[in-house]
Amino acid sequence: MCEMDLRSIDAGAVGFRQLMREHPETDTVVAFTDLMAMGALSAAHADGLAVPGDVRIVGTDGLSLGSLTVPPLSSLDVIHCGLAEAVTDLIERVLDGTAEPSEHVTVTPLPLWRESA
């Protein structure tokens, strides 16, 4: 039996429907990935909810694919904000002994405001 990828479009739709069933007052959803947000967006449309009128939906990857959804998906772009550079810097410092592997990398996401939020 094949299990659903928990970060997929389908998982986003399933999770969105469960959330709305259990908490119909929800007016904003921030999904773990843009793909999950796209699934939530699709489920909202199929269930007759207006986005962003009834519920706002935001993803967290900053994928350019989000600009093609209807309405275009708002997202928090983490990659743009130097995540790869910060991780690479930390790895270099761990390897040369100037940092501990337990150090944290912090980045501030760049909001990509589109029409879904």
Rank of each mutant, 00 (worst) to 15 (best):
17 R>Q: 10
76 L>C: 09
76 L>D: 05
92 E>L: 07
26 T>L: 02
79 I>L: 03
39 G>T: 11
91 I>F: 11
15 G>R: 04
78 V>C: 06
81 C>L: 02
80 H>I: 02
68 L>N: 12
71 P>Y: 14
28 T>C: 12
74 S>H: 12
8 S>K: 00
5 D>R: 03
21 R>S: 15
40 A>D: 09
43 A>Q: 09
48 G>L: 11
27 D>A: 08
60 T>A: 10
24 P>C: 15
80 H>E: 05
30 V>G: 08
12 G>A: 09
57 I>P: 04
88 T>K: 03
65 L>G: 00
22 E>W: 01
41 L>E: 00
25 E>S: 11
2 C>F: 12
87 V>M: 05
47 D>G: 08
11 A>L: 00
26 T>A: 02
67 S>V: 13
87 V>N: 01
61 D>S: 01
23 H>A: 11
60 T>H: 05
77 D>S: 15
41 L>R: 11
79 I>H: 02
7 R>Y: 09
13 A>N: 03
71 P>Q: 11
56 R>W: 02
21 R>W: 00
54 D>F: 07
88 T>W: 13
49 L>E: 02
89 D>I: 05
80 H>K: 09
80 H>R: 13
51 V>Q: 06
20 M>N: 06
31 A>H: 10
15 G>T: 10
4 M>R: 14
55 V>L: 12
59 G>A: 04
18 Q>C: 04
38 M>D: 08
80 H>M: 03
88 T>E: 15
12 G>D: 08
64 S>V: 13
59 G>F: 03
68 L>D: 12
46 A>T: 06
78 V>I: 15
88 T>D: 15
25 E>A: 10
48 G>M: 12
10 D>M: 04
30 V>Y: 14
2 C>N: 13
15 G>N: 06
4 M>G: 07
47 D>P: 04
81 C>T: 13
69 T>I: 10
32 F>T: 15
16 F>H: 12
27 D>W: 06
34 D>N: 12
36 M>H: 08
59 G>D: 00
8 S>P: 00
12 G>H: 05
60 T>R: 01
51 V>C: 10
22 E>D: 14
51 V>R: 13
28 T>K: 00
9 I>P: 03
30 V>A: 07
18 Q>M: 03
50 A>P: 06
31 A>E: 05
90 L>P: 02
78 V>T: 09
64 S>R: 10
69 T>M: 11
86 A>P: 03
50 A>Q: 11
54 D>H: 04
5 D>Q: 06
34 D>H: 12
7 R>F: 09
62 G>D: 01
12 G>C: 07
86 A>K: 13
74 S>C: 12
45 H>K: 11
72 P>Y: 15
69 T>C: 08
48 G>Q: 07
43 A>R: 07
4 M>N: 14
55 V>W: 10
9 I>S: 09
19 L>T: 09
49 L>R: 15
64 S>P: 05
89 D>P: 01
70 V>N: 04
61 D>M: 01
72 P>T: 15
81 C>K: 04
